[in-house]
Design a protein around this nucleic acid. Structure first.
Length: 492
RNA sequence: GCGGGCGUAGCUCAGUGGUAGAGCGUCACGUUGCCAACGUGAAUGUCGUGAGUUCAAAUCUCAUCGCCCGCUCCA
């Protein structure tokens, strides 16, 4: 119990039990890419299901959406990703430390360096010409830098099999823009009224400079994002609402409270579009045991919808520029932007406006990792170590395992009948091989909440034992009450 | 990208130039009477990959890929 869980223990368990594998392992692996195995995919799907149920299905004010990963290039121009999702990095020739060019300070001490957001790459290029007076933050050497190298954080690909006729596209770096791009469609088809939200779960891609700690930061990852649209002036209270709701969600699925907290972003740390941002952080067992972000909740204001209104009016420029994003500027915002095509008409107030947006944005992979780490436990049982995953029933990959105590006297047949019956309701597992104790322990390590065993008494009175994963206690339940009993315990 | 550590069976690891190993796990058969039981047997290795040195390389050298830790970075 007192043992500190190390990431290595988790990685090894994940491999051993088929939760998570290194991608392309037979070819030596591909950096920072991972595959979910048979148990892992169940866990991950359950995390997504739990999110969807809480954020979409249990609420009357949220609808779902599933957008394509590839989107019109202008989407990324308008959102700012095409320009601002790029960094320039220079390397100190003396100590090889790489630093973002816009973070380099002048030699002169007068500088009060404010936090700089990612800036347009062209401007940065121009500004970066002269690094002769810049100081390496690591070794203090002045003006000995390599040529600045651009880092585009978006993945590029090409659409169209015919090379001459193909177009450079980007894999989405966030799912949010698909929601903004469909804001009009949802308004027109679903009779939603502000305040309301649009939710989406899906893959996103970012060419992170460095990846980190197993599946915690990967270049391909899955997000669960909600864009919650509200009237300006109510945004602060909705921000608080979602902040609390999202925190409670993790707790309700079993994360220990002491491992979860909020971290408010400082004003100088906010993204270019955000008015406020708070992270829900989990205490992961990496390195120093630092808190790491599971989810960010941001107040994106009306930035995105206003930007897309500008983008829509810039479309012709893009065609005239041979469908290239470089060297085109978004046209200025219309004076009556509040009445633009992405505005909302408030029937009560008889007024059009661009709504504010509260965005809870969760990482599915890192959440799954947090649930895995948090559920992991080792305890002493009769001098032996028992490894188990104390998953919340909603997250457990397998809900119920069914065993005959021994392979004779018709027990396997009865157990199989029970299994075939139960698997219509839960993800179940049947096993008759070897000693029953071993089968129990195997299920402990997979995180299965309940094991059903058919024994000699079953033949007499139609009862079976239901063994609890966490306490190892057993109760006898009549077979005709079994389904109800399990349903109640599993809360499904 | 820098610095440090590491890579041998599914997992944990031993093996410093001379026949590829252990524990656990897996599988089969037997046995079984509720918590990783027992007996017998079996399968499983590009020793991360590629090159070099050598009569001989898991072992030495170089390159490369991957992982972990610390930097850097993280819209």
């Amino acid at each position: 119990m007192a043992k500190i869980t190390k990431l290595d223990d988790i990685v090894s368990l994940c491999k051993r039990r088929g939760f998570i594998f290194q991608s392309s392992e037979i070819y030596g692996g591909l950096a920072s890419c991972y595959d979910y195995g048979p148990l892992g995919v169940e866990l991950k799907n359950n995390v997504k299901k739990a999110w969807w149920k809480t954020v979409v299905q249990m609420r009357d004010d949220v609808v779902g959406l599933d957008c394509s990963i590839l989107m019109h290039p202008m989407v990324w121009k308008s959102s700012g990703h095409a320009d601002k999702f790029a960094d320039l990095i220079a390397e100190c020739k003396k100590c090889n430390t790489r630093t973002r060019v816009d973070h380099l300070k002048e030699k002169v001490a007068e500088q009060t360096q404010e936090h700089t957001e990612h800036i347009a790459i062209d401007a940065a290029m121009a500004k970066a010409q002269d690094l002769s007076n810049k100081v390496c933050p690591n070794c203090g050497t002045v003006g000995r830098f390599t040529e600045p190298m651009p880092f585009n954080l978006m993945f590029e690909t090409r659409m169209g099999a015919n090379v001459d006729d193909s177009m450079t596209m980007h894999l989405r770096p966030e799912t949010a823009q698909g929601i903004f791009a469909n804001f009009r469609n949802v308004l027109d088809t679903t009779r939603v009224k502000i305040p309301f939200g649009i939710a989406q779960i899906g893959k996103s891609f970012r060419n992170e400079v460095t990846t980190k700690a197993f599946i915690f930061r990967t270049r391909e990852f899955e997000q669960a994002e909600l864009e919650f649209f509200c009237e300006q002036g109510t945004d602060d209270q909705w921000f608080e609402h979602w902040k609390q709701a999202r925190f409670d969600w993790y707790i309700s699925l079993g994360l220990k409270k002491e491992n979860l907290h909020f971290r408010e972003h400082d004003a100088d740390e906010l993204a270019h579009y955000a008015k406020a941002c708070v992270d829900v952080e989990y205490r992961f067992p990496f390195g120093s045991g630092d808190w790491q972000e599971l989810e960010g909740i941001a107040n994106r204001t009306d930035y995105d919808l206003r930007q897309h209104q500008r983008g829509m009016r810039t479309l012709n420029k893009w065609y005239e520029n041979n469908r290239e994003l470089t060297n085109i500027e978004l046209v200025d915002e219309a004076e009556d932007y509040n009445k633009g095509p992405l505005s909302y008409f408030d029937d009560q107030k008889k007024q059009r406006y661009i709504p504010y947006v509260i965005e809870p944005s969760a990482g599915i992979d890192r959440s799954a990792l947090a649930f895995l780490v948090d559920a992991y436990d080792e305890e002493e049982v009769r001098g032996e170590t028992r490894n188990l995953l104390r998953f919340h029933p909603a997250l457990a990959p397998v809900k119920v395992a069914v065993f005959p105590l021994v392979k004779k006297e018709g027990m396997p047949e009865i157990a199989k009948n029970i299994y075939n019956d139960l698997k219509r309701y839960f993800n179940c597992f049947y096993d008759e091989k070897g000693a029953v104790g071993r089968r129990y322990r195997r299920q402990d390590e997979a995180g299965t909440p309940f094991c059903i065993t058919v024994d000699g008494q079953t033949l007499d009175d139609n009862t079976v034992t239901v063994r609890d994963r966490d306490s190892m206690d057993q109760v006898r339940v009549s077979t005709d009450q079994l389904l109800n009993h399990l349903r109640q315990k599993l809360e499904v």
